[in-house]
Design a protein around this nucleic acid. Structure first.
Lengths: 333, 333
DNA sequence: CTGAAAGCGCTTACAG
DNA sequence: CTGAAAGCGCTTACAG
């Protein structure tokens, strides 16, 4: 059978409470005794049962991690970073992958039943009611890449408008005049902000859009929409895409039509996913600061988790962190 | 505070045991009473605490899921499929992402402390000692894409040799004579089998390899190695790559050198990741049956988990499932 | 610093 | 089918 704290206590000649303390950082226990208990535990192959510990203690070490479908390169990149950082903080991610638009109330409730210490939500939509429930259950949520309407949930998000400003600036100053836009999934937070940023950047320069199409953030949609744009009577000399994946598709479209990139048409993305740097693409884009985003999200979460043990009367206001994207100039524009 | 089973019991006018039974499939409870308890629970917003349940009951519903870095497309595809299927089975994946070659004993021990019901290991290396420990802790392991030397751990794995046989057959019958190979990370199970399968397929036809290079399963390594092959004095007329990612790199290399694919050189991959079908690639490859693999892995795991509650005296022998890859012919070969 | 005791929120024999 | 009781493996006041 599994070895238990009682077994260790007996073997070490101490009380069960002491073996618990030996494994609890900062618990009152003589240094020598701790060393002894730990040694005995090691020799017996004992590890505290985290489930039992979770029942009593204040934390389970579990964090719900909600991301979009990782077959999409940006999501994969985000997940990879988050999962690594969560583990580095000695927590375990409970993974929930959702399709765009998925209601995740049910799934998150389920995660709550596991007494997760908190949740990082980078996809799907959570109702205000659920966010409220999470707070009450002592499981803070932090949103990534989106900001909840009420403004009472912590969030960390890239400055999408600035990103488009940087891209338009780059294109305009390299003499591009006829800009077209391929937007991502409509109604998504990022798409709304990016489109908005684009329109502002153009307005600021007295420019206007030649054409706008709508994709769904996938490579295929970028390909299809770019094909339409590039076979229209009046062709754009630059296509801004709502994310990198669509931009990769747009590059493929241009090539299929025998157009040179950036000679005939400049193409830009958003995110700077790993594939953006690959040989056949060399995509000019803006970098979504995924690592900084992850660290900030974890910091906010940690802050709430600690805070929750303090005075309950006044929850500090929600913190919204905006991170700046960086222009990455490669060959495509 | 959180509402507890006692609260529900009181509100419903039954014992705490009955509310537990109401939430336990197949537990002895009158249908009407169950409905009543469930209704009361719902109105109170009660959900059984899975941590408490895990302490008493026989299952936690947690499954450790070990995959390689998901920035790699095959791993992303696998993770996406596995996480979806695990959730569909109403379990939660505890995600562990590892780098190739990572010893995952420590991490898995940690997962064991969470009383996971089992583990699916698709990356990293687990020592026989750990596999043993897992079995003893009642947390069966099933390996995916690799088979443990001892042969006493369940595994499901693609028939790598058959895959190469299909590819060589296709190339040979389209008249290719000078075949080159770009292998993946050496010492990995898949690489050894694929290389082996290649050599067997060639031998069977009295052919031999023009050249062999070694990559690391990344796009960049495929690009670099293909560049070398394609600038050598004697160029291959076909390059077989150990996986799709390297094949995508190889296609980029050919293009960079102004060679046509498949005109000047045929290029093949392995896996059939989503990107293989993308416009600029149109990769001919063999499909690694990821969904079937996932389902088989879950079936094996489930089988062990159920089995463990039965008679303990004789563990059924390990089951090794081999799944056949399928040739997917596109443009690149 | 240390130990005995109570309790975390459930489930499951046990006895009706 | 139902309830009272014991127990899962810990942690944490409480009293030394």
């Amino acid at each position: 059978m599994r070895v238990t704290a009682d077994d260790v206590a007996e073997a070490a000649g101490v009380s069960r409470a002491m073996v618990s303390r030996a494994f609890t950082e900062g618990a009152p226990i003589a240094a020598r005794k701790r060393a002894h208990v730990l040694a005995v535990a090691e020799s017996l192959g004992y590890r505290p049962n985290r489930i039992a510990r979770g029942l009593t203690g204040s934390q389970t070490g579990l964090i719900a991690l909600v991301v979009g479908a990782v077959s999409r390169p940006y999501e994969a990149w985000l997940l990879e970073t988050m999962s690594r950082e969560i583990r580095a903080a000695r927590n375990w991610p409970l993974l929930l992958q959702v399709q765009p638009g998925d209601e995740l109330d049910n799934a998150l409730e389920d995660a709550l039943a596991y007494q997760v210490d908190g949740a990082i939500v980078a996809a799907g939509s959570v109702s205000p009611a659920l966010a409220e429930r999470c707070r009450n259950s002592g499981a803070p949520i932090v949103m990534v890449g989106r900001i909840m309407p009420g403004g009472d949930t912590d969030a960390v998000c890239c400055d999408n408008r600035l990103g488009l400003e940087l891209l338009v600036d780059h294109l305009a100053s390299s003499g591009r005049k006829k800009l077209a836009w391929i937007g991502g999934t409509p109604e998504t937070f990022s798409n709304i902000e990016r489109h908005d940023g684009l329109m502002q950047a153009l307005a600021r320069r007295g420019m206007k859009l030649l054409a706008a199409r709508q994709g769904d953030y996938s490579v295929d949609s970028g390909l299809a929409q770019a094909l339409t744009l590039l076979t229209a009577p009046e062709k754009p000399d630059a296509i801004l895409c709502g994310n990198d994946a669509m931009a990769l598709g747009a590059i493929a479209a241009a090539r299929r039509l025998g157009l040179s990139v950036p000679g005939d048409v400049a193409i830009t993305g958003f995110d700077d996913i790993p594939a953006a740097a690959w040989e056949p693409y060399q995509l000019t884009t803006v970098r979504n600061p995924v690592l900084e985003t992850t660290r900030e999200a974890l910091r906010l979460l940690r802050q709430r988790i600690e805070g929750r043990s303090g005075t309950h009367d006044s929850d500090p206001a929600a913190e919204i962190v905006r991170l700046s994207p960086e222009l990455i100039i490669r060959q495509s524009a």
